[in-house]
Amino acid sequence: MAFELPKLGYAYDSLVPHIDAQTMEIHHTKHHAAYVNNLNNALQGTGNENRKLEEIITEISKYPAAVRNNGGGHFNHSLFWEVMKPNGGGNPTGDLSDAVNKYFGSVDKLKENLNNAGLTRFGSGWAWLVVKGGELVVSSTPNQDNPLMDIAEVKGTPILGIDVWEHAYYLKYQNRRNEYLAAFWNVINWEEISRRFKLAIH
C-alpha cells in the first residue's frame, strides 16, 4: 500500500502566533505531500512498496538517494506534527522529566542544547532528542536524515524532532532561526514525547 499524507490533529492556524497558518499549510500540503509522492514513486516497482517506513529507514544505506531523502522527509514530518500541539509548552513530567534532569541537568539545559543543535546545523536539517542505548542525547542531521538511519552519526530512536529547514520558518522569521527555535517551546507536546520515550526505553 502506498504511503499517505497523515492528517494533522489540529488546525493550521492553531499554533499562531508561534507558527503561522500559511507556513503550516504549505509545509503540510506542499512539502510533506511532495515527500510522500516522491517516496511512493521511488519505491514503485522495486519490490519494497509494502515494507514499513521504519524498516526502510533503519536500512537506508541499501536504498537510493530518492528513498533516503523522501522517506526521511515523510518520517520526519510525520513525527514533527505530532510533537507539537495548540497551547503546548510547559515542562515534561514523570519518567521523561526524571530522564531529562538526569542527562541534561534541567529542562532549560535540554532546550539550550536543542536550540544550539538547531542553530549550528548549517544548511537544511533537523535537531533531535534521541534515546540512545537507554540514555537521552541531543543531535542534529543534515537534510532529511534522522537518527534511525543506519548512516546517522548519532544512532537511536528520535522522540523529538525540530525542523530547521528554512521552509519551516522563513515566512514568519526569515533569517531569525533563533526566534523560531525559541517560539517552538510554546507549541511543544510533551505528552507525545513522553509516550515515545516510554516506547523507546522498553
Binding site: 506542499k30 537544511s124 521552509h167 522563513y170 515566512l171
Partner: peptide, 9 residues
C-alpha cells in the same frame, strides 16, 4: 530556500 521562499515558497 531563503533565496526564493518569500516570493515563491
Amino acid at each position: 530556500e531563503h533565496a526564493y521562499y518569500l516570493d515563491y515558497q
